[in-house]
Design a protein around this nucleic acid. Structure first.
Length: 389
DNA sequence: TCTGGGGTCCTAGGACCC
DNA sequence: TCTGGGGTCCTAGGACCC
């Protein structure tokens, strides 16, 4: 035991002295070629395709055009020039651009278009991961022999998508998923960026730290407060400092900007099992009484338990989310002693969790949500057991 | 000023066990 | 009366992504 500690201590000390990370060789090797595809302003682009008179105009998809409530789901590049972006409130977007065109989303259409495009991608590699409506990763490692060939394939893919759907896409090609995504993000719309393994540092160094997925407003402020604005700034500091100052994510980010492969190659593309199922709703009109609350909760429970049933999932933890008009938000959860799949039990738990808030007036409630988690896939064997009990 | 919805991951504290 | 340290599970909240 003591020997191991000493050994570890030694390598750590040496690493500090020489400022050399003690990460394994393996983390430095890249043998994958990954392609990431992202459709440009997807929802907005589909709307413009369906209604060409919208072309060239600042448009947003999302929110309620009548009440001017809600948030921006996607906006055209013209709207982005006004500073409008996804997630922004409609009222704020209208302030930035008073003649903004609002389009009510046709989400069923988007999902149909998305499915067709994903089918096109499938022809380029059998190893594929759909990461959303408008984005996917392809593993080209066994498909192409080098980055030049990968680039040619990407050009073909973009043409293919445009020919069949009249939509443009941006593509990044790199030795791992994160870098491929960052690559595509740096050249939009209709871009194509290749990041070869030996060019990673050169490529990342001048980029803002916020280009890294997972570094949002809060994290970037912490980095900025420590005089780190670009990926290159972070790459320059000793990794111990990155770990100490910015925690686990700090170390991971440090590794990324220094060209280490931070991805677990084993589950590169295996889409993992779903972890939770939830539904939450904001009251369009303020609830009058507890009956209104009850109706909404029942409907949410119905939705999520039906989803779980379809997926053959039992669950053990039930979470209630409640938000008041002042935006103060609480979550309360409870774990059952065994996995179940029953609406009745969810309802009982939710009622129990709701007790704590019964002194509030119903009209003070803005949002309610129900989530089930701690999911367990039922095998046929267990199904018979469930029936038995 | 106004702030949707469905997710994942991380942190931190407390309970409990050995 | 004072009491270590590691592991695991549960809960609450928050950052972030699309």
């Amino acid at each position: 035991m003591g020997v191991y500690i000493a050994k570890w201590q030694f390598s750590l000390d040496m690493a500090i002295v020489n400022q050399i990370p003690y990460f394994s060789e393996k983390e430095h090797t890249f043998d994958s070629i990954i392609l990431y595809m992202d459709l440009d302003a997807f929802f907005a682009a589909v709307e413009i395709r369906e209604n060409p008179s919208l072309a060239g105009l600042p448009i947003v998809v999302g929110g309620n055009p009548n009440t001017k409530q809600g948030v921006v789901s996607t906006c055209s590049y013209e709207a982005r020039e006004y500073g409008i972006h996804s997630g922004m409130s409609i009222s704020q977007a209208l302030k930035l651009c008073p003649n903004l065109t609002m389009v009510r989303g046709s989400f069923r259409l988007y999902s149909e278009v998305s499915k067709r495009i994903m089918n096109i991608l499938k022809h380029y590699s059998p190893i594929m991961k759909v990461a959303g409506n408008d984005e996917a990763y392809l593993d080209l490692t066994d498909i192409v022999s080098d980055y030049e060939e990968a680039k040619q394939l990407a050009i073909e893919l973009k043409d293919d998508i445009y020919a069949s759907e009249k939509l443009t896409s941006s593509i990044g090609i790199a030795p791992n998923k994160i870098l491929a995504k960052i690559g595509s993000d740096t050249d939009k719309p209709n871009g194509l960026v290749v990041v070869k393994p030996l060019k990673i540092s050169e490529f990342l160094s001048p980029l803002e730290i916020t280009i890294i997925p997972g570094i949002g407003k809060k994290s970037s402020k912490i980095f900025h407060d420590n005089n780190i604005t670009t990926c290159g700034d972070l790459a320059m500091i000793p990794y111990q400092l990155a770990h100490q100052k910015f925690g686990k994510t700090g170390l991971k980010t440090w590794k990324l900007v220094n060209g280490y492969n931070t991805e677990n190659t084993d589950d590169k593309f295996n889409s993992r099992e779903i972890k939770s199922i939830s539904e939450e709703r904001t009251f369009f009109n303020r609830p009058k009484d507890w009956k209104d609350i009850d109706v909404l909760i029942d409907s949410s429970i119905e939705t999520i338990v039906t989803k779980a049933k379809k997926k053959n999932m039992n669950f053990r933890t039930i979470t209630l989310k409640i938000r008041f008009q002042d935006f103060e938000t609480f979550t309360r959860s409870y774990s059952l002693s065994c996995h179940v799949m029953s609406k009745k039990q969810v309802k009982e738990v939710v009622n129990m969790l709701l007790e704590e808030f019964k002194d509030k007036k119903p009209f003070q409630i803005r949002l309610l949500g129900v989530k089930i988690s701690n999911l367990l896939k039922i095998t046929d064997n267990q199904k018979t057991l469930t029936q038995f009990f």
